[in-house]
């Protein structure tokens, strides 16, 4: 597969390692009253779409950036690649 890195251009998927659903960015707030069940869902519950999937890839053999890749799991077509850091910030994550 070819992943179009937003800064470096097209790279072979072999340069990356795959983590999983980009939902992992949305880590719950530990102070929440329902933190235990929120963390449980965060850790264990996943959609398993036959279709577009937003997922995390780590450019381990490159610039060591984490990327959010939107990929169709049935055709492997990749429709977008973003820096995970940008996605995290857009979801209000900070320190």
């Amino acid at each position: 597969m070819i992943i179009n890195h937003p800064l470096l251009g097209p790279r072979d998927a072999a340069e990356f390692t795959y983590l999983g659903d980009a939902k992992l960015i949305e880590r719950p707030d530990w102070t929440s009253k329902t933190a235990a069940s929120e963390f449980y869902e965060y850790q264990y519950l996943r959609d398993n779409p036959a279709g577009l999937h937003r997922e995390l890839w780590f450019h381990e053999a490159g610039d060591r950036s984490w990327l959010v890749v939107t990929r169709d799991t049935t055709t492997h077509e990749i429709t977008s690649v973003e820096l995970a850091r940008d996605v995290a910030r857009s979801k209000g994550r900070s320190k």
Partner: peptide, 12 residues
């Protein structure tokens, strides 16, 4: 650790 920094605490 890079995941934690870039994905969870990007402004650290």
């Amino acid at each position: 650790m890079e995941f934690a920094h870039q994905c969870l605490f990007p402004d650290m």
